[in-house]
Amino acid sequence: MEKAYKKYFWLFVLPTLIAFTLFFVIPFLMGIVLSFCKFTTVTNAHFVGLSNYIKAFSNKDFLNALWFTTKFTVVAVLTVNVFAFILAYALTRGIKGTNLFRTTFFMPNLIGGIVLGYIWQLIINGVLAKFGVTITADPKYGFWGMVILMNWQLIGYMMIIYIAGIQNIPTELVEAAKIDGASKLQALFKVTIPMVMSSITICLFLTLTNSFKLFDQNYALTAGGPAKKTSMLALDIYSTFYGRNGWEGVGQAKAVIFFVLVGILALTQLYFTRRKEVES
């Protein structure tokens, strides 16, 4: 049978493979090569060794973006997951209106990043107007603005995953805990939370990569202002490419560094999920 299938490579694989090669493999390889070159278009590139990487690592904006992204990611991951778990826990108690609540909390997740950015710009600027400033007056405003935005967008999504996790817990376990005289709080920490660890791992990494790679929301909400102080990594790479002539190579080097960081996060996730599979 495999032999019969093999003959159909051209039909089943080739179309995807051509698109994949043109729009992923080639751009990726070119990207690696160009990170060691100086260029303004692809055709006038010449080799400059590690100089782009040295420039990237000594670039104040890049280091600031790296720090800002890290801070933002930590705060966003913690807040989103705590709130999402609380909501999921509340929505699995069989109370009235559960479905309506679930629908409402999930909705912001479908709205695109650019639109989200402008919605929150309106609200945050409206609040700050009482103090006579705007969101780009202080990097603090942009930071917390993005944290709030991210919570609004992602809580519903993570909540859905937590709900699925909590509903998969065998009822006997909780019954047994009840009979043994466990209080509600004890049941939560000794039964529910340990039993949804795999959902927690998934949600932690989903929020982690989503926050780390954030671009649209950042671009629309503050555009990096004031003075690039609220630029995250993805936005900093973008503005290095398209906002600074002659720095395309540095932009590409920054992009490679960014890719390596995201890759490390993905490998860590793989390590944790694999380990869990072995345990269970």
Binding site: F23, I26, M30, G31, K213, Y238, A255, F259, V262, G263
Partner: peptide, 11 residues
């Protein structure tokens, strides 16, 4: 796992 910024320019 490759972020879009990695291939943005070349793509």
């Amino acid at each position: 796992i490759v972020p879009f910024q990695m291939v943005m320019f070349t793509l």
